[in-house]
Amino acid sequence: MSEAAAEHALAIAGHQEFLTFTLGEEEYAIDILKVQEIRGYDAVTRIANTPSYIKGVINMRGVIVPVVDMRLKFNVGEAVYDQFTVMIILNLGERVVGMVVDSVSDVVALSPDEIRTAPEFGAAMDTQYIQGLASIEDRMAIVVDIEKLMTSNEMGLIDAVALAH
């Protein structure tokens, strides 16, 4: 079966594919269709006066790509860059964004009823970017609406950083 036929079969079955990755002890999942490529961590060019979670930019085949360290963004663990650190390159509409994570785990297919609504945490935690929680085998993954997160007002600096080059 071709890849397109497999994707079609999944769509008919009502499943959506997600790329899972880890940040510290937590596992997250994002829509696989937003992922352009996965690559090892590259050194970035730092941009002055950006939040700590915006590491800077890389030049990827002539495209200036802002890089966000998700460990710093979500406040989960130290940002240690080693041979396991991965950069997920996202294609979000008109923009390309790099996202640094600890490791990439798997690609999983989930149906809408397998994604449970995230509990409300009140003002203690911003859950507007969380689509829900999914049980994958014996573990729990936090399903993130990566497009909503990366295009939010607080991340608006991504546009400014990308336009500055």
Score class of each variant (00 low, 15 high):
6 A>I: 15
71 R>V: 02
123 A>M: 10
47 I>S: 07
161 V>R: 03
72 L>E: 13
66 P>R: 10
114 E>A: 13
66 P>T: 09
3 E>L: 14
124 A>N: 11
66 P>F: 09
86 V>K: 13
70 M>E: 01
73 K>V: 03
157 L>Q: 13
54 I>M: 12
2 S>C: 07
45 T>C: 06
104 V>H: 04
38 I>H: 04
163 L>P: 00
21 F>N: 01
51 P>D: 10
14 G>S: 05
103 S>R: 14
130 I>R: 01
142 I>W: 01
160 A>H: 09
89 I>A: 02
70 M>V: 02
77 G>V: 05
136 I>F: 05
123 A>R: 13
55 K>W: 01
10 L>V: 05
118 A>H: 05
86 V>S: 13
50 T>M: 15
69 D>I: 02
105 S>Q: 12
2 S>H: 10
132 G>W: 05
43 A>T: 12
62 G>R: 08
156 G>T: 09
153 N>A: 15
16 Q>D: 09
60 M>D: 13
33 L>S: 13
133 L>F: 10
85 T>W: 03
52 S>Y: 10
141 A>L: 01
84 F>A: 10
163 L>S: 11
23 L>Q: 02
12 I>H: 14
45 T>S: 14
128 Q>L: 05
71 R>Y: 02
145 D>N: 14
96 V>G: 01
30 I>Q: 02
65 V>D: 07
76 V>D: 04
23 L>N: 02
139 R>K: 12
117 T>L: 06
15 H>L: 14
119 P>V: 06
60 M>R: 14
46 R>L: 11
107 V>P: 06
115 I>P: 02
161 V>N: 04
45 T>L: 08
146 I>G: 00
18 F>D: 00
133 L>H: 02
97 V>A: 07
130 I>W: 01
56 G>I: 10
40 G>F: 06
100 V>C: 01
109 A>Y: 09
91 N>G: 09
72 L>H: 04
82 D>Y: 08
106 D>M: 05
21 F>L: 08
108 V>T: 08
107 V>W: 07
58 I>C: 04
21 F>D: 00
50 T>Y: 08
15 H>D: 10
91 N>W: 00
37 E>S: 14
143 V>W: 03
102 D>M: 01
51 P>Y: 09
150 M>F: 10
99 M>I: 07
78 E>D: 14
38 I>D: 04
134 A>G: 04
102 D>Q: 00
26 E>L: 11
138 D>G: 09
100 V>Q: 02
92 L>P: 04
135 S>Q: 11
89 I>W: 00
17 E>C: 09
48 A>Y: 06
2 S>L: 10
22 T>I: 00
71 R>M: 03
61 R>A: 11
81 Y>L: 12
75 N>I: 05
113 D>E: 14
149 L>M: 15
149 L>I: 02
46 R>S: 12
47 I>G: 07
103 S>T: 09
147 E>N: 11
101 V>C: 05
95 R>D: 10
45 T>M: 09
139 R>D: 08
35 V>C: 03
160 A>I: 12
145 D>Y: 03
30 I>S: 07
152 S>C: 11
96 V>D: 00
13 A>Q: 15
72 L>M: 11
38 I>Y: 03
124 A>C: 03
78 E>K: 13
3 E>C: 03
15 H>C: 13
40 G>H: 14
24 G>I: 04
129 Y>T: 06
